[in-house]
Design a protein around this nucleic acid. Structure first.
Lengths: 331, 331
DNA sequence: CTGAAAGCGCTTACAG
DNA sequence: CTGAAAGCGCTTACAG
């Protein structure tokens, strides 16, 4: 591997000068600049990133934390972030926390030694106080998740309350009164994860309907989870006539369970998904769902990060994107 | 950030000694070792990875190249690799090539400056000669894809020929004679990507059936691709009665098209997928497919890589895993 | 505009 | 068993 000294020797100039053209330092004469560039090309020289980092230079690497990359929502989000980052000359490295606080912490730590310039968090396991500590080492951007009232970190997200409200209200307007509800989190909790719950409760309350605890399913994420929810529903004495799920995958599982038990969707059970992933179009019937602008979210988060890295103070500290109710055939 | 000098000062020893305990160097007295460890703990010292890399030390980072992370096959593969790597103290960073040679090349280059210890390639865009060059900088392992007769790089894969043969033969045995075929690649080409084509042709040949070029769809990857394939099939004068697809996603798209056009699966068109991804269970009817042992593939590839990094010559240079034909309701 | 020198935080012969 | 010193490949004041 050729080093900066090799380039200096070959061009007959000093390492300082080579370094200056490498970093687009303004005051280098055109002539020497060309000599250096010629030498770099001939030697196929590429700077050693480790050496640069040690000098405190930027790494042009952005970290993205997600819970699980096999979740399509996250893989599409990462994809969008990567697109923007790549255009701007940044590399992105993806970290799976698996909802493990310790793991997430170890990723945050990578900023300390300049292995990462900044971190985009699409999931949050640690507390506000902990995360705040790492702000000293580089910018952090929240996307998808956020922490309420924490304005030291810019966030990009959707209005979960409104999205859930809209979905549930759609079912109510269709005449449904017994509406089951699935969430990936818990039903009684604090912070952002409670937003969809609030939307559900709000819609019900407006119609004077009380929440039936039996109809609430917590901690549901996968197709399998959805299947078991479906089976549970169809076994109930007083069955719900509709279910609002937290993700297209759970919804797809519910529909699969309906087929299994020879129940009709939407006649016996209406189903609303969340996300509008590709699978929403291959369930049968096709899934009514709430479209998240996942590409926009990723792109905006990436842009916010790059702005922060360039020292620009972000114009928006809290970007809330619109969701879109997509009516298909399961309602 | 505390440095090695801080630890040396605090423990009253030299940097050399600190470095030795850091690297588990054998000849350090128990007493000094403890003093160093105490100082490290008190200072919350963590070594600077950039400085270590510059000295040529391992980075304990493994790169994984895939075409697109939004492809579930790849996200599950990455997930499995990461699990093993994490247990062994390695970090993995994922690279999307988007089937771009240049991009892939830039990832390979990261080994040159020790940013990456080794690379697991789940997709291959560059030629054998190019890839071979980078072997000088670190180990490479192929998983999923491979290059025929290239025995300088260990590979983990399935027998694509046998898998496709089995799927097509299943249809033939059911009496189908007009069997369409979708591939993610081309139909006439060389190397590994041709393997499934060979299996298809072989099965047909055994029954004395000629390939109908009209029935061959190339370059199909997504659900949307599958839908257009389905529409094309149902428009044909002499329709195929079955289709063997290259992925569950394409198969799901075909099924969606069938629903749209009021055609029955499998009565009007039998469908076989490939991969056995989660979506295979939520199509209606449930998808008959070929299960790839994606977790095993990922785990084995990761283990091969770690062995290579530890200087062990791998026992197997070419690991071929079994696929499993999973009959559900679309055939 | 250009170069010599110091230093980033480590590791590793070389002595002892 | 332990330490002083050199060096990995860069960047950046400091002079000129």
């Amino acid at each position: 591997m050729p080093t900066i000294s090799d380039v200096a020797k070959r061009s007959g100039l000093s390492k300082s000068t080579v370094s200056r053209v490498l970093n687009n330092y303004p005051h280098v004469s055109e002539e020497k600049k060309e000599r250096v560039q010629k030498a770099m090309a001939e030697l196929e020289y590429t700077p050693n990133p480790s050496a640069r980092k040690m000098r405190g230079a930027l790494t042009t690497t952005i970290g993205v934390v997600v819970t699980r990359i096999v979740n399509p929502f996250f893989s599409y989000l990462v994809n969008a972030i990567e697109q923007v980052a790549y255009e701007q000359g940044y590399q992105v490295v993806v970290f799976q926390s698996n909802e493990d606080q310790e793991k997430e912490l170890s990723f945050l730590q990578l900023m300390q030694h300049k292995q990462l310039d900044g971190i985009i968090m699409a999931s949050i396991e640690n507390d506000e106080e902990v995360i705040e500590t790492y702000l000293a080492y580089g910018p952090i951007v929240f996307v998808n998740e956020y922490i309420q009232h924490m304005n030291t970190v810019p966030s990009v997200r959707i209005n979960h309350i409104a999205a859930a409200y809209e979905g549930v209200m759609h079912l109510l307007n269709q005449g449904h009164r017994r509406i089951a509800y699935c969430t990936g989190g818990l039903f009684e909790q604090q912070g952002q994860s409670d937003d969809r719950n609030i939307g559900y409760k709000k819609a019900l309350a407006e119609k004077g309907i009380e929440v039936d605890p039996q109809f609430v399913f917590v901690n549901k994420h996968t197709i399998e989870d959805g299947e078991s929810v479906g089976r549970a529903i169809f076994q109930m004495k007083e069955q719900p006539t509709a279910v609002f799920t937290g993700s297209d995958e759970v919804a797809a599982g519910v529909i699969a369970a309906a087929h299994e038990l020879n129940q009709r969707v939407p006649e016996d059970l209406a189903v609303v998904g969340f996300d509008d992933q590709p699978i929403a179009k291959i369930t049968y019937p096709k899934l009514t769902t709430i479209k998240q602008p996942v590409d926009d979210m990723g792109r905006l988060a990436a842009n916010l990060m790059i702005e922060a890295l360039n020292g620009t103070t972000p114009t928006e500290n809290e970007t809330v994107l619109e969701t879109k109710f997509v009516e298909r055939d399961t309602t």
